[in-house]
Design a protein around this nucleic acid. Structure first.
Lengths: 247, 247
DNA sequence: GCCATAACGAGAGCAGTGCTCTTGCTTTTT
DNA sequence: AAAAAGCAAGAGCACTGCTCTCGTTATGGC
C-alpha cells in the first residue's frame, strides 16, 4: 500500500519485537543470549533474524543503546523531578512554587534513580557497565547515549558553579588540568574544567557503588540497608565535588 | 614409584598447566574461553580435561581464585613496601630506618598496585570484577581470596585509627550502623564500624575507578594522564575516609 | 497493468561449543 | 598376581553463530 510505508513499518515493528524478546531473554540468560532462542521464541527461523540484525553483536549494540537511553532518561527525569518541575501528576501541589531544590538534591535524586534502574534490571546494567564481551568493540553509535548520565551530572555541577552554590575545592594540579579543559570545551563550552573532573569523579563513584552492589562484591557485608549505604556513598561523592559542605 | 607421589604430582602439574594455558587464552579471548581450545592447545582430547576440572565453570572458578590471590598479593606487597619494609632488593638504603610512612602512603601504594595489576591483565580483572557470567554462582571457595584487598584496606584504616592518625569524621547515622558493627566483629574484632564503612567505601571507589578506566567508560575524556586522574580519585577517597586532612 | 528488483522467510549446512559415555590402557593398591 | 582406580581418546548429543540457497511476496519504475 501507501508508497513508502507498509514494508518499512512492519520492519520497524519486527526489529522492535526482536529487541523486546531479546530483552526478555536477557533478564534470564544474561549477556550470552542466543539468537536462535529468540528466533524460536517468536516462531521464525534463526536465519530470518539476520534480515534485521547483521549479527548477534549488532543486536547487542542496539540493546546497549536502548539501555543507555533508558537509564539516561530515568536519571534525567529524577533529577528534573527533584528540581521542582514535577512532571504532570503532582503538578498542583507544591511543585512549581518551590523551585529551591539544591544541586545536592538533584544529584542524590539522579544517583538513586540510576541505582534503582540497575536494581530493577541487573542484566541491562551489566550489559552496559559490566565487562565488555571479548570481541566486542563499542561502535560510534553508543558513545552518544553512553554519556547521557555523566553529562547530567556535569550539568548539575555546572549549575552549582553558576549559582555559586559550590564549596571551595583546591584547584586541579597535575598535567591533566589542560586535558580537562579540552574535554570541557568539547562537551559543553563554558563548563569549568573542575566541574568536568567532578562529574567524572562522581560518576565513577556511582558506577562503582552500583556495580559492587549488583555483582555481589560486598556480599554479606551490607545486607539490610543497602539504600542507606548507597546514599552514604553518594553524599561522600557529593562532598568531594563540592555539592555540599557537611560530610 | 614412591607410594603416594607420582600420580598426584603429575596431576597437580597437569592442572597447573591447564590453568596456565587457560590464562593465556583468557588474555585473548576473554571470559568465554573454550575448554576444547585449551585442550587442543596442549595436545589432548577435550574430554581428558574433564578429569581435572568437572566443568568449564570449575576451571573459571579456579582461575578466579588465582586472580584474587594474585591481586591481593600485589596489593599487600605494595602496601608493605610503602610501609618501609622493603622486601630484599632495596633493603639497605633507607628502608628499615624510616618506618614513618603514613597510612595514606600505604593506601595510595596499594590502590596503585591494584590499578597496575588490572592494567597488566585486563581480562583477569574483568574475570573477578566484571559482570558475572549468567549461570555462574560464586562458590564458597572464592569469598576468602575475594576479600583480601578489601581487608587490606580495612587494615590500613584500622592502623590509622589505632595510631590516631585519622581525621575526625561525623559518626555513622542511619540504620546500618549496627549492621556495620556485626560485620566488623565478623572480620576483625576490634575494628571500629566506621573503619569498616570506610574500607568498603574506599574499595568501592577503587573498583569503580579501575573498571571505568579498563572498560572504556571514560573513553576520550581522560586519555593522557590516567594515572594522575586515578591518583586524584584515590586521594579523594582517602580524604573521605579520613586518611588525610587536605583534599 | 507489467515486470524487474529488492526484501523476506525457511531450510540445510558448516564449524565450533560444553558435556557425557564408552572403550581401551596404565598405574596403583590389595 | 589380581582387583581397583585413574587416565586418555573417540564418538556422539544438543546447542551455538552464521552463510548460502531457494521459493515467495511486496515495492517501484515504465
Amino acid at each position: 500500500m501507501s508508497a513508502s510505508g507498509v514494508r518499512a513499518r512492519v520492519r520497524a515493528e519486527m526489529t522492535d519485537e526482536i529487541k523486546a524478546v531479546a530483552r526478555r531473554h536477557l533478564a534470564t540468560d544474561g549477556a550470552n543470549l542466543s539468537l536462535r532462542a529468540v528466533a524460536r521464541d517468536m516462531g521464525m527461523a534463526s536465519s530470518a533474524v539476520y534480515r534485521y540484525f547483521a549479527s548477534r553483536d549488532e543486536l547487542l549494540t542496539a540493546m546497549i543503546i536502548d539501555a543507555y537511553n533508558s537509564l539516561g532518561e530515568a536519571a534525567e527525569q529524577a533529577a528534573q523531578g527533584a528540581a521542582g518541575k514535577a512532571t504532570g501528576k503532582e503538578a498542583g501541589k507544591e511543585a512549581a512554587e518551590q523551585n529551591g531544590k539544591t544541586e545536592l538534591d538533584r544529584f542524590l535524586a539522579a544517583t538513586h534513580a540510576v541505582r534503582e534502574w540497575a536494581l530493577a534490571d541487573p542484566h541491562q546494567w551489566a550489559l552496559i557497565y559490566g565487562s565488555p564481551v571479548p570481541g566486542y568493540q563499542a561502535p560510534q553509535d553508543t558513545i552518544g547515549p553512553a554519556t547521557r548520565v555523566i553529562l547530567l551530572i556535569a550539568d548539575i555541577v555546572k549549575s552549582a558553579y553558576d549559582s555559586g552554590r559550590i564549596a571551595e575545592r583546591p584547584p586541579i594540579t597535575g598535567q591533566f588540568a589542560e586535558e580537562l579543559r579540552v574535554v570541557a570545551d568539547n562537551y559543553a563550552a563554558g563548563t569549568p574544567p573542575r566541574a568536568v573532573a567532578a562529574a567524572l569523579s562522581a560518576f565513577l563513584h556511582l558506577s562503582g557503588a552500583v556495580s559492587s552492589e549488583l555483582f555481589g562484591q560486598l556480599n554479606k557485608s551490607v545486607e539490610e540497608d543497602r539504600r542507606g549505604f548507597f546514599e552514604f556513598q553518594m553524599r561522600g561523592a557529593a562532598f568531594l565535588i563540592g555539592l555540599t559542605d557537611n560530610l
